[in-house]
Design a protein around this nucleic acid. Structure first.
Lengths: 365, 365
DNA sequence: CTGTTAGCGCGTTCAA
DNA sequence: TTGAACGCGCTAACAG
């Protein structure tokens, strides 16, 4: 097979090195505007920059040309020339389908916008490989910084630093062995306070629902839970522990526990997914148990939920919520990132990593 | 031809572990790597591109230098040089805090990722001004395309086209007078089907909760609702109509209607925010009415909800959901955008705008 | 006030 | 197999 030009039929300009106007290819450039206005590219540039040292009537011509062509200065090219950063930050969350992270992203976006930056979005789906790939792409795009909700400990600490080189702020979760700016919620105290609410109501057999141990929040919240139990002189039955990754699995676990030999009288749910599952299982159980035993229905299991869930308070399930605003968390993470950025720009390259903890409040329903 | 660069003042430290330029300014460049490896920038470029026509041992030196400096090729510069698009698409939604749009964004993101693009995020907060500003920024960043959930009719149709010049796909809602690719749900049929479910249960006084009239979905869903009523030979009491923008206002409206002179026996809720409000009001009303009249509690008002709401099916409120997957909607919008992009790249510049409608299924609880 | 020169970081093209 | 020159879109610096 020789190197024959296959598509030569329609192309009519063999030697012409001039793809000319924007009409043919992409967006119009300064030169297109300049040509139309009969000036040099610099005059266009100056006019776009505010019109300093450009005669008003020339400005008029330029602006007319801009309008006519729909010209918009190429931000990327500007930034390159001015050696300025891209004005983009990245945010990688585990699952945008979780309402929690939508609100989180909103918080980030608001602060970024206030700082004149825009946000590039990524969703890892709790997959460490996808996450690493995301970070690599972010780095290649020269993003100014990244806010990451890590999928777990699958992330190679060295890898991250090398791959990025750009400032990284962890949110919600930490990664073992990775020292890094981070914004967390006060998982331990919050979980302890929520557990205390259950204990105050006389519960002594409490089931625990949480994410897998690789997730730092799962560990920390379990720790707070255990601390509260021990503080009350109670032990914990390992048989009442369920580590699950989604609401369906949580529901199955709760159903199993409730129909088992020593059913808990209450549950601690470590995140909004497990809470949804637990509520579903509890309501189902209630429906079944009332039908069976019409006269004296057994008490409905109580629930302490880390994170809010919309409508959860209307279900008639005794509920305590360990609450914080994910939007504030996102905003705090963004603020921390911009503080870090400002610090690096100022010259002090290596300030120590900072960790911020947002408070958790317990509300009862 | 001296290669003296003002930046590299001291050239006497060959083995220095500190990246010289990168420490002062941003990321290391091809030249930094080339200098360290003792080759020309082109050899670095070739090595990064796969190493064609580069001696293996030279490649080794280059890769070592890349590793040492943490060099990543600047994507923006590549794209500029290669006259390639940015690989970014924009998505502007009204409110990321609404779980619906989180899932929507996830759908967009998945498809974008499959097409090797990344997603820049914007949230207009239902503010047309902010929305227009967002689109302007998107255009300036040379995004390849934009997916927009318009805040309403505040958007100037001419303005959009001029401002962007880049392909635009509307999602969920349309804008009057703006002909444009769009992905919608089948609002009219869906609303009619949901209303039919209420009618089948014998309801004749049905309250309507929806967004303001400026929102196309509010109009279309109202239209489907009315059609179904008329098809059943029923009229609609304007006093049973509430146009509200958030769940709190919806709750107030429902409470007012339920405690009014001719309370509806059912409600049609046109979006997930009004559904949350309605459910809250209905549950509250139920609690109050049961307390007052222990023996024979009046029947709980039924609800037909456009859009799913988590946990809504557990509340004991007779519920019909006009359901679709926002993630699929986002995915479809992205697919349409990429189809449009492919079309423009191929040369056929002006194919007519396409509208896709996703089906709605009614589920009863 | 305006145009020319030069160069940001990269890759294609062509010459060595 | 390697390097030099050139250009992508834009603008600072220095002409005129």
């Amino acid at each position: 097979m020789t190197m024959s030009r296959s598509k030569a039929s329609a192309t009519s300009d063999p030697g012409a090195p001039v793809p000319r106007d924007a009409a043919v290819r992409g967006a119009p450039t300064v030169r297109d505007v300049a040509a139309l206005a009969g000036v040099s590219p610099m005059t266009v540039s100056r006019t776009m920059a505010g019109g300093l040292n450009v005669r008003p009537e020339v400005q008029e011509r330029v602006r007319a040309a801009v309008e006519k062509l729909g010209y918009r200065p190429n931000q990327n090219a500007r930034n390159t020339r001015l050696r300025k950063p891209t004005g983009l930050i990245g945010i990688a969350v585990t699952n945008l389908g979780n309402p929690y992270y939508g609100r989180f992203a909103l918080g980030v976006q608001g602060v970024a916008s206030a700082h004149g930056r825009q946000v590039v979005l990524g969703s890892s789906g709790e997959d460490p490989e996808l996450e690493e790939q995301l970070l690599t792409e972010f780095a290649g795009r020269q993003l100014e910084g990244v806010i990451l909700v890590p999928a777990g400990n699958g992330l190679n600490p060295e890898g991250v630093r090398q791959l990025a080189g750009i400032p990284l702020v962890l949110a919600t979760r930490t990664v073992d062995g990775l020292e890094c700016d981070a914004v967390l919620v006060d998982d331990v105290s919050g979980a302890a306070a929520g557990t205390a609410a259950l204990l105050a109501d006389g519960h002594v057999r409490i089931g625990f629902l949480g994410d897998v141990e690789g997730i730092s929040t799962a560990r920390r919240r379990f720790q707070g839970f255990r601390m509260a139990l021990e503080g009350a002189g109670l032990g914990f039955d390992q048989g009442h522990l369920a580590r699950v990754r989604d609401s369906e699995a949580a529901a199955r676990a709760v159903t199993a526990l409730l129909t088992g030999p020593h059913p808990p009288t209450a549950f601690f749910s470590a995140n909004n997914r497990t809470t949804v599952g637990a509520l579903r299982a509890i309501c189902e159980w209630r429906a079944g148990s009332v039908a069976t035993d019409a006269g004296t229905a057994p008490p409905v299991p109580a629930l302490a939920s880390f994170d809010d869930v919309e409508l959860a308070d209307l279900l008639g399930v005794p509920l305590s919520v360990m609450s914080h605003d994910p939007r504030e968390l996102g905003a705090a993470a963004a603020e921390l990132l911009f503080k870090r950025l400002a610090g690096e720009a100022a010259g002090g390259p290596h300030r120590k990593p900072v960790t911020v903890q947002l408070p958790v409040s317990v509300r009862r329903f």
